[in-house]
Design a protein around this nucleic acid. Structure first.
Lengths: 139, 139
DNA sequence: CCTTGACCTAGAGCGCACTCTAGATTCTAG
DNA sequence: CTAGAATCTAGAGTGCGCTCTAGGTCAAGG
């Protein structure tokens, strides 16, 4: 039994607009067939693919790159090393992003701690308190 | 000694365009003064603030939120609990994003492993091999 | 001096990833 | 049968975060 665009929207969390957009952009692994009435008729594997796409997108892969991956898959067997390279490269980037976020988190957490101490102990130390003032340049 | 926009660009990695844009958007903690010739004259604390902004931005804080934080700081002492709340909320979001990325990474890594096995062992199992086919809907 | 590069303002333009609109058709429940 | 919900296509519009342009002014080295 096939799935309507609404079903797929529900199953993937993507809006129907996004699904039509993805189709125009060629992100699917096949041409989505239509019913005799002209409505999209998806199948489970389409949903599975979209769920993977969601993970790739959430982790920062641009649509153009998802499309490159989809194109490789559509080409059929023979280019698995290329697909592997693409995935490995993305994996590397996600790891790097996690590291970056952790570094940011450390900085932010330090600020939180400073403010906590400040808030629960009267008044301040170590904050960007009143607007900074400075001498004019080449006065 | 004050810093030119080029100096600050170098020090922060932000383009001079971005620095002027940030100023228009009110992200600075003060009005950046000008030299008699009309050029921006930054000081070290401006750079320090921008470096913090960079961390906030890298970790996904929208410019509007950075501005809210800047506005709180500019208001001066008294609203530290609000600043703390803002930072804590962002901290929470960054932690959530890291978790999300880790989940994505697990999925991606699984795919990588599947492809590795496939590539270094002849032909396939468990991939989106040839384009999926399916029966038409309500035929 | 004078050239060359950095800087100025105001505002237009861009890339991305959707999102929404219009106007028509199809599907479904009563 | 019919009303209302869902879907269709093609294309315009949106929000974000810059980035670039035009048409100048300013500043530092030779």
């Amino acid at each position: 039994m096939s799935l309507s665009i609404g079903d797929v929207s529900q199953a993937t969390g993507l809006s129907v607009h996004a699904l039509r957009f993805f189709e125009r952009e060629g992100l699917f692994l096949r041409d989505i067939p239509r019913t005799q009435g002209g409505q999209r008729a998806y199948e489970r594997p389409d949903v599975d693919w979209l769920l993977l796409c969601n993970r790739l997108r959430e982790s920062g892969m641009p649509i153009a790159t998802v499309k490159r991956f989809a194109d490789l898959v559509k080409e059929g067997p023979g280019n698995e090393p290329d697909r592997l390279a693409l995935l490995r490269e993305h994996e590397r980037q996600v790891e790097a992003k996690i590291d970056e976020l952790r570094a940011c988190l450390a900085v932010i957490h330090d600020k939180v701690v400073v403010y906590e101490r400040h808030v629960e102990a009267g008044t301040a130390t170590g904050l960007w308190s009143p607007p900074l003032d400075a001498e004019p340049r080449r006065p």
